[in-house]
């Protein structure tokens, strides 16, 4: 196969994965709505009432109770108050499972697309912004896929798959670059090491930020309970979410430390100095320092977990800036100019 055919195949796999991710997102939305006990029940009973009214009209001489049951059977709705809603309900489990399976498939397609692109260009496929973006969200997809089933993270799915879709959408529209050869500075085995670990770190930071944001929502509801409990109440407790976010961010932080060191070693080879405060280096350091502050704040007596989480989210904002503005905005001109834009 020619490189062009492979590159086309890679693009087709990418589009297919976007379709499957969209389906996964819908399944996760269904899963979340099935988790929320009362609201879904209220909606179900409202719908039943409507059907009852219709049923009564159709079978005017029939008993009301019978008509109601018939209508319910026809609509496939469970009886209000049954075990069909709530985090452990069959319905939520089914949708969660469907969402996860679709996510596995979409991630597989996306990883396949990245690999095909790599074969097409005969190098690690992260030489420009388009390739960075697709490879990074592929890493996020892989990290989520690996961790989700074991940790029962179906509820997190929608918060992961939606950003993945957004990034992929941007990648294929705005960032797309034809497959091409690498610039001399990128021709090094350190590209495979440094950038791969950076992607893994970013994927863990992404999961950590998603769980962290959910934690903040959940915690607010715990402090000020809502009169009508919904989806948020069906999620794991704030304390559990906080621990999960911490573990993810911790993993990301360790990998980011390695990214920074591997980058320095490569910088020494390519540019002659291991650290010279090029904008990418500045932001790599900023991210490191902010997450270090997060780790520190969590171990500091008297700093509450919510404030720590804000620091972690600020760190994630820096990750996003590092990935977007520093690559694309000319203010940050440095030596990492590989965006291909």
């Amino acid at each position: 196969m020619t490189p062009e055919t492979l590159a086309n195949l890679a693009n087709n796999a990418l589009y297919s994965s976007m379709v499957v991710f969209t389906l996964a997102m819908l399944a996760f939305v269904a899963h979340l709505s099935a988790r929320a006990p009362r609201r879904a029940q209220a909606r179900a009973s409202a719908r039943t009432d409507a059907l009852v009214a219709a049923g009564v009209g159709a079978a005017a001489d029939g008993g009301t109770r019978d008509a109601r049951d018939v209508a319910r059977d026809r609509a496939g709705e469970p009886a209000p108050g049954s075990a069909a809603y709530g985090p452990e309900s069959l319905r939520s489990r089914q949708w969660g499972s469907i969402g996860l399976t679709l996510t596995y498939l979409a991630t597989l397609l996306l990883v396949g697309s990245v690999v095909l692109r790599g074969v097409a260009v005969a190098r690690p496929p992260w030489g420009n912004m388009f390739e960075f973006a697709t490879a990074a969200v592929a890493a996020v997809g892989v990290a989520y896929s690996v961790l989700a089933r074991r940790n029962r993270w179906e509820w997190l799915g929608v918060f992961i798959v939606t950003p993945i879709l957004l990034v992929l959408g941007l990648a294929v529209t705005v960032l797309y670059t034809e497959a091409h050869e690498l610039m001399p500075a990128l021709k090094s085995y350190w590209l495979a090491i440094h950038v791969t670990v950076a992607f893994l770190a970013v994927s863990l930071f992404t999961l950590g930020a998603a769980v962290g944001a959910v934690y903040l929502l959940r915690r607010r509801r715990e402090v000020r309970p809502s009169a009508r409990p919904g989806v948020i109440e069906s999620l794991p407790s704030a304390a559990a979410l906080e621990r999960t976010a911490y573990s993810l961010n911790m993993g990301g932080f360790i990998l980011w430390t390695f990214t920074l060191i591997a980058g320095s070693i490569w910088a020494k080879q390519a540019w002659g100095a291991y650290w010279q405060w090029d904008p990418k280096e500045v932001w790599t350091f900023v991210i490191w320092a902010v997450y270090a502050a997060y780790m520190h704040s969590r171990a500091t007596a008297g700093v509450d977990a919510r404030k720590s989480m804000y620091i972690a989210l600020a760190g994630y904002a820096a990750v996003i800036i590092n990935f977007t503005a520093v690559n694309l905005v000319s203010t940050f001109v440095g030596m990492h100019n590989y965006s291909g834009m």
Binding site: F285, A289, V290, A293, T300, G302, V303, A318
Partner: peptide, 22 residues
């Protein structure tokens, strides 16, 4: 620990102009 935390945050903010200005 609190001071260390504050200084860590401060140094990350202080580094940013180094990437914005030439």
């Amino acid at each position: 620990m609190r001071t260390a935390l504050f200084l860590l945050l401060l140094i990350s903010v202080a580094a940013v102009p180094g990437s914005i200005f030439p």
